[in-house]
Amino acid sequence: MNVVVCAKLVPTGTPTLGPDHLVVRSGTDAALDPGDEYGLELALQLTEQHGGDVTVVSMGPDEAGQAIQRALAMGASRGVLVSDPSLRGADALVTARVLAAAIGMYPFDLVVAGVESTDGYTGTVPVTVAEILGIASVTAVRRLEPSDAGARIERMTERGYDVYECPLPAVVTVTAGSVEPRFPSLKGIMQAKQKPVDRPSLQDLGSRDLTATQTVTAVTDAPTKAGGEVVQGDEAVGRIVELLAEAKVI
């Protein structure tokens, strides 16, 4: 089973916005989105058990190469980085179009992504990729194993979980906590430097219509809520009871 994993470089601290209302990317600390590590781990386990390779695909600035290196150090075989100045400020649709085109250049049975990025939280790009590729998708996956029909998948719901039969190829998004992501070993880090990282251009991808459809026109600070009273342990019970009584819930 060949798996393509989508990876995103995200700021590690509290992100900031530049004068163009876009997230400041250069000169800030950034890393592979921790939400992507679960899907990567699942992909590594699947290929270790059933054969095949893991290719990790990222779109982003040159620094996104760090996210790919991390994935390669964890055990992915190949990296693919799509980086172009014109993609700065790309929205969900542009991102999905670029990722779909890049993924389409490699053999895959499964595309794996995080449920949503830890900086943007839109959470639609993977299904949009699936639609562009014309394949099935299941989101919020906590378990996946190959089956006669393709894959047997458990998806988290608001009430519990559902089990799906899913034809392959397919796109899945993997929830945090579903597997325990491995730490790269020293050997893995050394080997990662020898692994291939392809850098297709937008022309190679044949991507058209990469104009972002969203523009931020204004950014303002949200009104902050003034903190209230802070009490120490022994006063606490009395004060909480008073507050509950004021709220008329006891």
Binding site: D91, T124, V125, P126
Partner: peptide
């Protein structure tokens, strides 16, 4: 989760802007 999957799919087919 369910509605946003529909929206994401729809964006892929009609190419409209999507804001989350």
């Amino acid at each position: 989760y369910d509605s946003r999957d529909v929206a994401g799919r729809l964006q892929g087919s009609i190419g409209s802007a999507l804001m989350g």
